[in-house]
Write a protein that binds this DNA or RNA. Structure first.
Lengths: 151, 151
DNA sequence: TTTAAGATGGACAAAAATGTCCGATTCAAA
DNA sequence: TTTGAATCGGACATTTTTGTCCATCTTAAA
């Protein structure tokens, strides 16, 4: 239902959000989130173009969130790499009817709108908020003690 | 968000549902729903294997719903061609934690569950039910009079 | 029995998504 | 000023999805 690219982008920003005021090298992020290094590089470039992250080049550079995790929503991240497309007209493209949708596409678009909203109102900060026992990422070599669930 | 194949499958069964006790040839369905004939043939085979439709071979054959539109849900159709996959374990595959998900994947799976439910509880009959002014399909050459919206 | 309408399914082609490689560029620190 | 760490971005490879073609099998009607 969600593309690999979206998954990758979300894992990456979640990793960045843990320490968001410093740049993190692609390689570090890739290691931590277990994804192909060079593909992540492309994903980060997309996130950069969309203004979700900043690129700091040169030594000790890397990527960094442009805003506090409480300001960034999951929808921003998703739309940066693989925009959620609402259905705003009949996919059959028949002429002669207005902006109304037939029942099928009305249903489909309702579902899309709901998931869009679910992500529009979820910030990265909420994801990381660990008042509960869960954590969004955990290092591989440090097995979790209780419910230290990995991303 | 939804694949072309899903769109096609839904259009096709919506077309079949309008007159579900007779078989309809692939070519007829393809014309009416504006999709590639030969690709639809593959989609119909998948729907057939999944038990959503029956194939009647030979002259005057075609495809036909196996059950009344009120018995068939959108989810059945979707799952027949492109199953909705729930997230039931950490995609990173890290060992050492149970069946719990981290916050990110919990959110993602919540969204998936909601759309799954939206389709589980919508039948084809509901889609066709035209107490309202909308109709799920309309012929191209007959321009709609009021709000006769096309699929 | 012949014929035409129709599904079946294998093979292939095209396009999109995903993944890999590497040289060029940028910048900070030594 | 040199060097090393890092992004940038083009080229290419692989895989999946989507689309096309066609020979074969099946059945009803003529």
């Amino acid at each position: 239902m969600f593309s690999h690219t979206v998954e990758y982008a979300l894992r990456a920003v979640a990793a960045l959000a843990e320490d968001w005021e410093r740049p993190h090298a692609v390689q570090k992020i890739a290691d931590r989130t277990k994804m192909p290094n060079d593909y992540l590089a492309k994903v980060m470039q997309a996130l950069c173009r969309a203004g979700v992250v900043n690129a700091i080049r040169g030594r000790h550079g890397g990527y960094q969130l442009t805003q506090a995790p409480s300001k960034l929503t999951l929808l921003m991240v998703i739309n940066a790499v693989d925009p959620i497309k609402r259905i705003d007209r009949c996919p059959l493209g028949l002429p002669g009817h207005g902006p109304n949708l037939c029942p099928l596409h009305r249903r489909l678009d309702d579902a899309i709108r709901e998931t869009e909203n679910a992500f529009r109102y979820t910030t990265l900060a909420e994801l990381l908020d660990s008042t509960g026992p869960v954590r969004p990422l955990c290092p591989v070599d440090q097995p979790p003690a209780f419910i230290n669930v990995a991303l």
